[in-house]
């Protein structure tokens, strides 16, 4: 293919470095938007439940609430989408401020694994309540 110099959008510095684009940023960007839209619909119900029962106590009421399949589904979806959004958001913050490659890799690994573990813990606790404590 014949390349015309004036048609290239790459900077001269970019050409010398010859790294190309990262080819993965759009996916992350899109996921942040998708999870934020999903959270708009998912967040209010579980959060109100949490605040209600955390402030007033009512253990029996909370258990009864989570025995309903609709509430349990809402909480499980919220946990998965919420932790995904939180981990990806923290990833952006870490990538913005942590420039040392080693510290960056370790903190990204920690954030992702802690988020995944917490999400699984939450889902299992919800299922345990749903199937009867």
């Amino acid at each position: 293919m014949k390349k015309k110099k004036q048609n290239s959008f790459r900077t001269t510095l970019g050409k010398v470095r010859a790294m190309g684009s990262a080819k993965s940023g759009t996916h992350h960007w899109m996921l942040m938007r998708l999870t934020s839209v999903a959270l708009l619909f998912l967040i209010l119900y579980p959060i109100m439940g949490f605040f209600l029962y955390a402030v007033y106590g009512g253990r029996e009421g909370a258990l009864q609430w989570l025995h309903s399949p609709v509430a349990a589904t809402g909480v499980v979806l919220f946990l998965i989408v919420g932790f995904h959004h939180a981990a990806n958001g923290l990833q952006v913050v870490i990538e913005d401020y942590v420039h040392c490659n080693c510290a960056k890799s370790i903190s990204l690994f920690l954030v992702k694994s802690i988020a995944a573990s917490c999400a699984i813990l939450g889902v299992l606790a919800t299922l345990k309540i749903f199937f009867g404590v």
Binding site: Y53, A54, F83, A86, V93, A119, G122, T126, K128, I129
Partner: peptide, 25 residues
């Protein structure tokens, strides 16, 4: 950004609430 970071730390508290609820009174 700050509230986002704060909320990321609040999410595990939600899980702790679920865990406490799933255990005993």
């Amino acid at each position: 950004r700050i509230t986002g970071i704060g909320l990321a730390f609040g999410l595990p508290v939600f899980v702790i609430w679920l865990l406490a609820l799933s255990k005993d009174a």
